[in-house]
Write a protein that binds this DNA or RNA. Structure first.
Lengths: 202, 202
DNA sequence: CGGCACTTGTGACAAGTGTCATATCAATCG
DNA sequence: CGATTGATATGACACTTGTCACAAGTGCCG
């Protein structure tokens, strides 16, 4: 089984490579530090790759974006997501993007090789801990505008600055944030942003 | 060289173990998922450990706390910090705690083994990228109260709630936050909390 | 002792925020 | 066509936050 490993932290990338290469039936044939690098590699060598293992949070092009791209251009290559954070929103978006595997870095190292074998055999692999928590928590109730406004508020921008960035009036921004605060049952915009981030919604 | 590896994410822990065990002169003799587990192991087998490699952010007892404890109880065992985030405050605190090595997970995997050999030989190893950024950025200008108030503000608590938690009047809390905002040249409490977090100050 | 720094608190004011009712406009649907 | 819907905007109001000046209390140093 020939792998493309995509992970932005060099040390973790190298360590995972060493771990996976210990398995007789698994070979890491290429590594990439983000989605764009992976994309460039695939453009040349897509035929040599059986499975892609990718982190979600990465600079340039993240794991979700890479997955969408792979599904579109190389629909036969399965993508396994590997992430630090057990956020229901991530799982949702990864599955929507066509990922067939979803593992937490909290899971035991052995599970990664097992998951890859399952995926290569055509099965889907979802981290059970996360699947349970995803079932238990509600879906993302936010609209795109609300999400974007929250994200900017989280960075410390005030209503005026958010309005400028989003090409909206201050009043409209306040309406969006007020909606988001109420939907998330938060006390204020900071609280709302924190809650949304925790769920993986922003 | 016998290592104790402390890292909370199981998959990363397993992968680092595999990576390090590939080196002829390095042997991971024990792993721990947080500082408390490491402490318990050391209580039994401290004599068998030459170097400790530990993550900084961990539940229960973090890398800084573990380092302080090791320096106190087993002053001859060197501690190497390994962290995801290039924050000057972390480096500062790690060095204050007596760490003799400080590496980023962003660094190439080979550097870890090299660093361990340097440390075993009595040298200190500081990630150069981080050392530069630490020199470039100012020290933490916040008082304890300001730090604590910022941390609570970051969680979405309002002035009244922060006051309750800290046993202070609302006015005093506002004074602290106002001071912090001005010291960090932020626009508001959210911005200030974000800046402080980025530097590793809260 | 007097002076000094530090912590905590108050009051006042301006600016920003949260909520709500409502208006406008374009797009959509029956 | 009229009705409905969604996105955007406005204005009003109460509340929260940011800033500042200042005061009272504590502990410390010379």
């Amino acid at each position: 089984m020939n792998l493309l490993l995509v992970e932005d932290q060099a040390m973790v990338r190298g360590a995972l490579e060493a771990l996976l290469n210990l398995e007789d039936d698994i070979q890491v044939v290429a590594c990439a530090s983000n989605g764009l690098v992976a994309k460039a590699y695939l453009a040349e060598h897509a035929g040599t790759i059986d499975v892609i293992v990718t982190d979600i949070q990465m600079p340039e092009l993240d794991g979700i974006g890479l997955c969408l791209l792979v599904k579109q251009q190389y629909p036969d290559i399965p993508v396994v997501m590997l992430t630090t954070f057990a956020r229901a929103g991530y799982l949702q978006r990864a599955l929507d993007a066509g990922a067939v595997g979803f593992l937490l870095k909290d899971a035991p190292a052995e599970r990664l090789a097992m998951a890859l074998r399952d995926v290569a055999a055509g099965r889907k692999v979802i981290d059970s801990e996360l699947a349970l928590s995803a079932l238990g928590s509600r879906q993302d109730p936010l609209t795109d505008k609300e999400r974007q406004a929250l994200k900017l508020a989280q960075q410390g921008l005030n209503t005026a600055a958010i309005g400028k960035k989003m090409c909206l009036s201050q009043g409209t921004v306040r309406n969006y944030l007020s909606e988001a605060i109420s939907k998330l049952q938060a006390n204020n915009r900071i609280d709302a942003a924190r809650i949304a981030a925790e769920k993986g919604w922003i």
